[in-house]
C-alpha cells in the first residue's frame, strides 16, 4: 500500500529523512532507518572541505517551527566515506546530499559520494544561510541548470535537486533542473527568516538570519509542489512542515510522490516516520484507496 518507486529507487514507504536533520553521522542515519522507520534517508549536505558552520545559537524554536542556521557544517567528503558505509547498514536507500561553492565542487563531491555507494544524489541548491553556496545556485534558473548539467556529466545514479521557495520563480528553476537532467525535484528547503530577542535587542541566531522550517513553512511548500508538479514530468518530493499523515496526504494530493520529514522529529521523535506512514495508510483505508500512488496529484484535476 505504501511502497513507492522514486526515480528508480524502491522505498518501502514514502517517508524520507530530510537533509540537515540528524544526518551528520552514519550512526544517526542508521537509527532513523532502523528504529525510525524512514523509507529512505538523506545525509547532511556534504561539501569539498570540512566546515565548522556558524556559531551557536544555531537553532531557535518559535511558534509553529524552527529557525536554524547550522551553516553547512560537515567533515568534508573524504571523511564522510565511512559514515555512508554505516548508514547503508540501515537497509534503506541512502541519498547523499551535496553542496558546493561552485559547479566543480558540486560535481566532484557528487561523484565521490556515488563512489561511496549512495543510491542517489540530492543537490542542495536550497540552503539559504551561507552566502555563495547552496541556494545561491537555486535562486535563478540559469545557475540551477548549470549545476545540474555539470553533475549529470559525472554521475549515473538518480539525481534530485532540492529547491528553495526563496527563488524568484521556483517553477522555472524546477523546469531548468528537469531540462538539465535531474531525475526528481525536492520542494522545498527552508525560507530565510530571523528572530530577535527584545531584552537584549540582539538577533538570537549566531548567524543573525536563518532558515524557517516546520508547520509554518507547510502552506508555502505545498503551493510550490502543486505548481511544480503541474509543469514537470519528473517526480516531485514534498518537503516543508510535514508532521502528520494528513500533512503528507496534502502533499500527495498536490502531486508529490514521496515526502521528506525533518523538523517534526522534534515534536514526534525519531519514530515520526513510522507514525506518519501508519497515518497515511489509515487515510487510504478510510477513503477506500488501495495504494498511495492513487492519490498523487488528485488535487490537480
Amino acid at each position: 500500500m505504501l511502497e513507492v518507486e522514486l526515480a528508480g529507487l524502491k522505498l518501502a514507504n514514502p517517508t524520507m529523512l530530510a537533509s540537515g536533520i540528524l544526518g551528520t553521522s552514519g550512526a544517526a542515519l542508521k537509527r532513523v532507518a532502523v528504529s525510525g522507520g524512514a523509507g529512505a534517508i538523506v545525509t547532511k549536505s556534504i561539501g569539498a572541505t570540512p566546515r565548522e558552520g556558524h556559531p551557536n545559537p544555531t537553532v531557535v524554536e518559535i511558534d509553529g517551527g524552527l529557525i536554524s542556521a547550522i551553516g553547512l557544517a560537515n567533515p568534508g567528503y573524504e571523511e564522510f566515506r565511512e559514515e555512508i558505509a554505516v548508514a547503508k547498514e540501515g537497509g534503506v536507500p541512502v541519498v547523499g546530499s551535496v553542496y558546493g561553492f561552485n559547479f566543480q565542487e558540486y560535481a566532484m563531491v557528487a561523484e565521490a559520494m556515488q563512489g561511496y555507494g549512495v543510491d542517489a544524489i540530492e543537490l542542495n541548491i536550497s540552503y539559504p544561510n551561507v552566502g555563495k553556496a547552496g541556494a545561491f545556485f537555486g535562486y535563478r534558473e540559469e545557475l540551477a541548470h548549470e549545476v545540474v548539467s555539470e553533475v549529470r556529466k559525472r554521475v549515473s545514479i538518480p539525481l534530485f535537486a532540492k529547491l528553495t521557495a526563496n527563488a524568484g520563480d521556483v517553477v522555472a528553476v524546477a523546469k531548468a533542473c528537469e531540462d538539465a537532467g535531474a531525475d526528481a525535484i525536492t520542494a522545498t528547503g527552508a525560507l530565510r527568516a530571523m528572530a530577535i530577542d527584545v531584552t537584549t535587542a540582539k538577533p538570537v541566531l549566531g548567524n543573525r538570519v536563518g532558515g524557517l522550517s516546520g508547520a509554518c513553512l507547510k502552506p508555502v511548500a505545498l503551493r510550490c509542489v502543486y505548481e511544480i508538479a503541474e509543469e514537470v514530468s519528473i517526480p516531485v518530493i514534498g518537503c516543508g512542515g510535514i508532521t502528520t499523515g494528513r500533512d503528507a496526504v496534502e502533499f500527495f494530493l498536490a502531486g508529490a510522490r514521496a515526502v521528506q520529514i525533518g523538523t517534526a522529529v522534534l515534536y514526534r521523535g525519531i519514530t515520526v516516520f513510522r507514525k506518519v506512514s501508519r497515518e497515511i495508510a489509515e487515510y487510504l483505508e478510510e477513503q477506500g484507496y488501495g495504494h498511495v500512488s492513487e492519490i498523487v496529484g488528485l488535487a490537480q484535476r
Binding site: 540537515g20 536533520i21 540528524l22 544526518g23 551528520t24 553521522s25 552514519g26 550512526a27 544517526a28 542508521k30 537509527r31 528504529s35 547532511k44 558552520g53 551557536n56 544555531t58 537553532v59 524554536e61 524552527l66 536554524s68 547550522i70 557544517a73 554505516v86 525533518g262 523538523t263 522529529v265 522534534l266
Partner: peptide, 20 residues
C-alpha cells in the same frame, strides 16, 4: 559539542548507538 541541544541536528550522536 552541542549545536541544537534539542535532538534534531545530529551533532552529538554517539557512534555505535545512534543515541543523542
Amino acid at each position: 559539542y552541542f549545536k541544537c541541544g534539542i535532538g534534531i541536528c545530529g551533532q552529538c550522536v554517539l557512534d555505535g548507538t545512534g543515541l543523542r
